[in-house]
Design a binder for these strands. Structure first.
Lengths: 233, 233
DNA sequence: ACCTGAACACCGTTCAAGT
DNA sequence: ACCTGAACACCGTTCAAGT
């Protein structure tokens, strides 16, 4: 008997999806995994090691495809920006379209709890932010708003949108939110020393996230309108 | 000869400032040290270990006086807010006073490079933010602005101020700043596919930090004015 | 009451070595 | 060209033990 004589492997022993399941690492795949991890554990919990683990590999392997954790966050942000769908720019309805855009952005941030926080202090310029920028400028230019205020307004708009989304998040976070704790602190201040806080105390904290969002949006749009009128060139 | 016979220490060997230099740890002292470390190494570089080292002790010692790194950051923010000096509220000059307030805030953020970034996504409510809030509400109430828009406007105002300060920082950071790199990227985009970016490309990036700051400030003030008029109750 | 050292369970990143 | 394990130099926080 010859113990060296092996029968060939049967066909059904073949590894499934030879080149797919043991998926080769891709930048795309890494960003996808990172976004999933991010959605589960937040910005604080996001780590190269965890992303790697989700891909069944080690952290060091990521560095062939990605420069940095910081770069990965930028890629992740751009990926999420891609979820915002845009209608054809319609100059006639520019104000309405800006409102719709704001709501679409807010919805996107709402789907990824910590994304707004991650976006503050970063300018995740990439294909998708380019796309959004082009659209926004098209709408503003179409409305007859000159380049300078249009460009600068876009900046403020994005920023306020993100910041507002962070507040949305704060206001709806676990147990007794920071928000209500703050309300109690403010309400308990001596009214004679802080008369204006005492007077406004309910308003400082109350109001639904929706109401606040609309207020801020309106503030910006009204500001924009006035500015255009005040400085038409 | 008796080797146990020691001469007493001469007076000039005494430890300087017996109860002061070997300073007992205080929350105050910790916050001071933390702010100093923060100014040197930024938000990224701030660590409990480094703060402790600056105080000549170990990280564990801080935890008697401070709950968290997170709490320490809040304390540090409130401390810095204390640097903003406020004039008597003068209802007659409310718009001008808001402008002065914005500039004072910007100057404070300018003194502590990473502080604006740290403040985004945090509501560092404490004695000093209370003080600033009371002042802001006094000015707005004095101007006849009702509590709700006043309160909500304060929010937006603080937020935009911080975000703007972050941009100030980005625009002036080391070597070739992210800002100019972004400008080159945008300018190099195919103009036929991104006509509006092509048209606005210089404006997207150009303009001094001062100009942008004034633009944003004006936008908010004009928005506020319009809002009041539009919704007087 | 306050401080400490040592430990725990993590990090991001690099680098020689493998295929 | 791409992936890996092990190492380096860090983290925040806890906890028993000291004074």
């Amino acid at each position: 008997m010859d113990s060296d004589a092996h029968a060939p492997d049967p066909s059904w022993w073949g590894r499934p999806n030879r080149n797919q399941s043991r998926s080769t690492l891709t930048r795309e795949a890494i960003v996808t995994a990172a976004l999933a991890v991010f959605d589960q554990v937040g910005l604080e919990g996001l780590s190269m090691r965890r992303v790697a683990e989700a891909l069944g590999t080690g952290a060091a392997s990521l560095y062939w495809h990605v420069a940095d954790k910081e770069q990965l966050i930028h890629l992740l942000l751009d990926r999420a920006m891609g979820e915002i769908e845009l209608p054809e720019p319609d100059p006639e309805r520019w104000e309405e379209q800006l409102r719709e855009f704001a709501h679409a952005g807010r919805a996107m941030f709402g789907r990824h709890r910590d994304l707004a926080l991650a976006s503050l202090g970063r300018v995740p310029m990439g294909p998708n932010l380019v796309r959004l920028t082009e659209w926004l400028l098209a709408v503003l230019h179409g409305a007859g708003i000159p380049s300078r205020p249009a460009a600068w307004f876009g900046d403020v708009f994005a920023l306020v949108g993100a910041a507002q989304a962070v507040e949305d998040h704060l206001a709806t976070t676990g147990d007794m939110s920071e928000f209500t704790a703050m309300g109690e602190y403010l309400a308990a201040l001596p009214p004679d020393r802080f008369p204006n806080i005492a007077k406004a105390s309910p308003e400082l904290v109350a109001g639904s996230a929706d109401d606040r969002f609309e207020f801020t949006l309106e503030l910006l749009l009204l500001g924009l309108a006035s500015y255009i009128k005040a400085e038409p060139r």
